[in-house]
Amino acid sequence: MPEKPAKRLPGRPKQANTDISIYQTIISTASALFKEHGYEAVSLQQIGKQCGVSKQAIYYHFASKPELFSVAMTTMLQNIRTVTSRLLDDAGQLEQGLVLLAEARLANPHAEMVTMMREAEPFLEKSQLHAIREAEQQIHELLAGHFRLAISRNFLREEDPMFLAESFSTLMLMGNRESTLPKYESPLVLGQKLVALFLQGAKAH
Rank of each mutant, 00 (worst) to 15 (best):
E119T: 00
A91L: 04
T180A: 15
L44R: 08
M1P: 08
F168R: 02
F34N: 00
V83R: 14
F62C: 05
G201I: 12
K193N: 02
S169D: 13
Q128C: 02
A72M: 01
R118H: 11
E159S: 12
L197K: 11
G11R: 05
I151C: 15
P109Q: 07
S127N: 11
E121V: 03
L197M: 06
L149N: 15
Q24C: 10
E3H: 03
N79H: 09
L194R: 12
L106K: 04
L9V: 15
R118S: 08
A135K: 01
I47C: 01
K193F: 06
E125R: 09
A202M: 07
M174R: 03
S127K: 13
N108S: 11
H205V: 09
R153S: 08
Y23K: 13
V99I: 15
S54V: 12
Q50I: 00
R153E: 12
V53C: 09
E178G: 12
E166V: 12
P5H: 12
C51N: 01
P10V: 07
N79Y: 03
K49E: 04
L106I: 07
L199W: 14
A204N: 15
Q15S: 14
P66I: 03
R157Y: 09
V71R: 02
I20H: 08
G48K: 00
Y184I: 06
Q50Y: 04
G145Y: 12
M117D: 03
Y59W: 07
Q50S: 12
Y184Q: 04
M76H: 05
T115R: 00
L181H: 04
K193A: 02
S43A: 10
T75V: 14
P5T: 03
L194K: 03
F34E: 00
Q200A: 06
F168D: 10
L173M: 06
A202H: 08
Q24V: 05
A107K: 10
T29C: 01
L164I: 11
E3S: 07
E121L: 12
A30T: 05
A196Q: 05
K7M: 14
S21L: 10
M162G: 01
G38I: 00
R118N: 04
A202P: 12
E36D: 14
E40G: 14
C51P: 01
L94V: 08
G92V: 11
G92M: 13
A165V: 02
Y23Q: 03
E119R: 00
S64R: 08
L88R: 15
R105F: 01
G52M: 10
M162T: 09
F123T: 01
S43I: 09
P66M: 05
G145K: 15
